[in-house]
Computed example of a mutant assay.
Amino acid sequence: MNNASIGRPASFLVHVSSSESREIHAFWLDSQTGGLEPVEVVAVPGSGAPTRGNIPLAWSRDGKVLYAQVRTDPFPLSAFAVEPASGRLRLLESCAMPAPMAYLSVTRDGRYLLGASYDNALLAVNRIQADGRLSMPCLQILPTPPKAHCVIEAPFGGFVYATSVDGEAILVYRLDAASGRLQAVAATAVRPESGPRHLVFHPTLDTLYCVNESAGSLAAYRVDRACGALTELQYESLMPAGFSGRAMGADIHLAPGGAFIYACVRKTDTITAFRIDPATGMMSSAGAFEAEDYPRGFAIDPAGRFLLCAGQNSNRLAVFVIDPGTGALTLVQRHAVGRRPSWIEIVPAPGQLAR
């Protein structure tokens, strides 16, 4: 019996990209047990050299196309269609980009792909065609302060937010939905030597959370819906007392519904959890948990039951069950993946998406 089929009950599709081996490992995740079943390993188009940093991934809004970019010249960005009957990926196209992107995201209307280039300090916008392919050349390229690392659209107001690690700022743009072009409207300076890296919005509150790479900290900001401006609400260290140096904070995710937020730090091999007040968005500590060696990326399944973490040095994918009451993480299993894994995406099984 082929379990990877339409109608597969209670499962999610997991993709893990690994930069050194330049491949994507796909798994079925059992939404009840946390068990992983391998689906396939897909080579990502690019040069023969290992790609530096990571291979960012992003899904189209309809869940039919997965985007991935290799960060070595000529910086190919590939679009893969997912086959509904099997969950396997089929390459649609691979096109050269003007710069290597550390982060990819799709706008809420599904019409544009946004990219942030850490190496070249820029943002890029591409129009997405009806079949999921990208229109080239880029619709827009915008310079940023040094080391752009994230770009996402807010769930309200047509604003887009981006981080600049060494520019010590969160940048705000207004998105013109008709043209796809971004217009800079504001920039929020963060605390010195923070190094803002990745962002996530609370699903119901006007609150933005940011994990800081340099300081190894987590900041919360109130968002002004009228103009997109940010006001700091809270700033919490993720580091043990006495730590010095660059912490290498990495990734941040909210549990579905926004009850808990998680952030990882590479230098301490930990994922830290905070409980979020549903009225104010303020955070209170829910514990720090041992993760994989050098946890660069992690993700939470759409049901909020499991957290999956990629160990960039261990070359493993770890599955943790999330305690719904406390937010605590308990290891379920580990699975080998490619060399230097760094990005994870989890979506419902294709057959469930099609319904």
Rank of each mutant, 00 (worst) to 15 (best):
S5R: 15
L13E: 00
V14Y: 06
S18G: 09
L29W: 04
E40L: 01
V41H: 06
V42D: 06
V44S: 06
R52E: 06
G53Y: 10
S60N: 08
T72P: 00
F75N: 04
P76K: 03
S78M: 13
F80N: 07
S86E: 08
R88I: 12
R88H: 09
S94T: 13
A99E: 10
Y112L: 03
S117M: 09
S117N: 02
V125P: 01
N126M: 04
N126L: 05
R127K: 14
R127S: 14
C138S: 15
A154F: 01
V160W: 04
D166I: 06
V172W: 02
Y173V: 00
G180V: 07
A187Y: 05
G195A: 06
T204N: 12
E213M: 00
A215K: 00
A215D: 01
G216S: 11
S217K: 13
A220N: 03
Y221N: 07
D224Q: 08
D224S: 10
A229K: 11
A247S: 14
D251V: 03
H253N: 13
A255Y: 12
G258H: 01
C264A: 15
C264L: 14
C264S: 15
V265M: 08
T270K: 10
I276Y: 09
I276D: 06
M282Y: 15
S285G: 11
A288M: 10
D293N: 15
I300V: 09
R305P: 00
L308R: 01
C309F: 05
G311V: 02
N315S: 15
R316V: 12
I322M: 04
L331V: 11
L331T: 09
A336K: 14
V337R: 00
P348W: 10
